[in-house]
């Protein structure tokens, strides 16, 4: 080891002046950014069986919600075809059977999907973003800001959830699924804010954060680049669990009559099935209950798997192992690809 013969100051050979011979084009930059922030995490997720399965499941639902709604006909009431079992009729609509008023269960599920997904997305994004921002600012800034923000947070968290929901829904009368999602998570951010704050507190004075501040980094950048990465596992997990809880919370709204009854909701169909299929007595109409139950369960399962797999992306120890394995593979392929400057192409590939 040992350092090389130090060149004199001001010398163009000084390591403090080294620059590349080649200019990076905008294309190069996009390529690198895309590869680092999109391709690399996706690859890590794909490599893990949970990630793969989770990604596929979620993708499946997205496809159902986008293409499915075009392909599958809308559910319609049909007294002749009530309570059909799956595959009883050779009709696409009744592939999974029908409910008590003759609506095909598959069309019901498919056409509810976009609304459900919108609700979950809106709820998860709203609940978590607000929680993260409040927790970050509060934990990092400290002082009076912290005290005020936390007081507000605690007050919001201690409001009884059901009455709050009733009042909000009665006043706003939401129809838009995005709006419904937001209303359902109007309190969820408070718990997360507290959790985020406690995780941020020890980071306030940690050396690498101080180093960043010392080099002149702005507060917002320090928060984004230094503090946030530590919080990502928690945030991802919460994102998925908020999405799940939105499904169930939404059922309540419909049943309390705060929103006009609609069958475009898996939970509502599930509940109808429970009440009207006589399930406690016989399994004859079990399909009515099972179809929405499984629909909900599969998505929940997919989201949970995905959340777990994300840990591989965020956990540096696991990520490092992935990258090391990849590097070893890529190295073999690119052994001949060293360009004149001596800097291996590998340095630019992720």
């Amino acid at each position: 080891m040992g350092t090389e013969e130090p060149p004199a100051e001001g010398d163009d050979d000084s390591p403090f002046r080294s620059q590349s011979e080649f200019d990076a084009s905008a294309m190069d930059v996009y390529e690198v950014v895309f590869s680092r922030w999109v391709v690399s995490p996706l690859r890590v997720l794909w490599n893990d069986y949970r990630g793969r399965f989770g990604l596929l499941l979620v993708l499946f639902y997205v496809l159902v919600g986008t293409i499915g709604v075009v392909v599958v006909p809308e559910p319609s009431v049909d007294p002749i075809n009530r309570l059909l079992s799956p595959l009883e009729q050779p009709d696409l609509r009744y592939l999974l059977g029908s409910d008590g008023v003759g609506r095909g269960l598959m069309p019901l599920m498919v056409h509810a999907t976009p609304k459900m997904l919108k609700m979950m997305l809106a709820g998860a994004i709203f609940g978590n973003s607000l929680g993260v921002v409040v927790g970050l600012v509060s934990g990092y800034t400290g002082g009076n800001t912290d005290k005020i923000l936390m007081t507000i947070t605690d007050v919001v968290a201690s409001i009884p959830p059901l009455p709050l929901l009733l009042i909000l829904a009665a006043i706003i009368e939401p129809r838009n699924p995005y709006l419904i999602g937001v209303i359902l998570t109007v309190q969820a951010w408070a718990g997360l804010a507290r959790g985020i704050r406690s995780q941020v507190l020890p980071l306030r004075n940690v050396e690498y954060v101080e180093a960043s501040k010392t080099m002149g980094q702005s507060t917002s950048t320090v928060l984004m680049k230094q503090v946030l990465p530590d919080l990502l596992p928690l945030v991802t997990l919460r994102f998925m669990s908020t999405a799940r809880s939105v499904i169930f919370a939404s059922v309540g709204l419909y049943f309390l009559g705060l929103l006009p009854y609609t069958s475009a909701n898996w939970g509502v169909v599930l509940n109808s099935a429970y009440e009207n299929s006589n399930i406690l007595a016989s399994f004859e109409n079990a399909h009515w209950l099972l179809v929405p139950a499984l629909t909900i369960a599969m998505l929940t399962f997919g989201l949970t798997l995905l959340a777990q797999a994300f840990d591989q992306v965020f956990n540096p120890r696991v990520r490092a192992r992935h990258e090391a394995r990849r590097r070893a593979d890529v190295e073999e392929e690119l052994e001949e690809d060293v360009d004149e400057s001596g800097v291996s192409q590998m340095g630019f590939q992720q």
Binding site: P15, S18, S20, D23, A24, D28
Partner: peptide
């Protein structure tokens, strides 16, 4: 990135690599 906005991706890569080598 903070202090040398004129440096592009390649320049930064090169500078970092050189400094790493210099310190062994």
């Amino acid at each position: 990135k903070l202090w040398y906005p004129d440096m592009d991706l390649n320049d930064r890569q090169e500078r970092i690599a050189t400094m790493l080598r210099t310190t062994g």
